[in-house]
Amino acid sequence: MIRLEHVCRNFTVGDQIVPALDDISLEIGKGEYVSVMGPSGSGKSTLLNLVGLLDRPSSGAYTFDGIDVTHLTDAAQALFRREKIGFVFQFFHLVPRLTAIENIALPMLLAGMPREERKERSGKLLHDLGLEARANHKPDQLSGGQRQRVAIARAAVMKPALLLADEPTGNLDRASGMEVVSLLEKLNGEGMTLVLVTHDPEIGRRAARCIRMLDGRLD
């Protein structure tokens, strides 16, 4: 499903060029569960952003379902993200003034789905998460684990083919971290391809396939 060929990503800091990704070639199949590990600064987030179309490679090619997505326009990439990719972040990034259920419905709002369907889908997800009682709570009234589960529901609500999670447990204690991971794994079990960046070897080991990164290269 995902194919990276000789992908490089350089950042220019002052007059210095920092190669965050250095000649990465990688293939991820449909429905795979891949964990990405590596020391800080090794380029894990950069890779995930690239795969998630939040960033463009400096060189190399990226095809998604056989489509060359590197040269799509911004608007087309946004559409791609909306329909095919779900993001989960370390810092949750919920909209503070919206309730849990409204946060979950946000991607559907962007997609212009009818109100009825938005309600139905976000309600069902909340039910699956066991967070029904929290539906009308604002994020600051939720615990970290609850927030991350709401964020995962938001990422999954459009039924994307690809789920990207960048250290989703980084801000959580062990117990809620495990809850979050099992939720992601459940979604993977439903057929979503899952790419998970983590520092926790125990979590990393759970994936069927483990990618190690070092200094912008695959180890």
Binding site: A78, R81, F87, H93, P107, L110
Partner: peptide, 16 residues
């Protein structure tokens, strides 16, 4: 800013 970043990440176009 962060909210705008998020909106874009979940598929909002610049136009939106």
């Amino acid at each position: 800013t962060r909210e705008i970043g998020l909106l874009k990440a979940i598929g909002a176009t610049g136009m939106t």
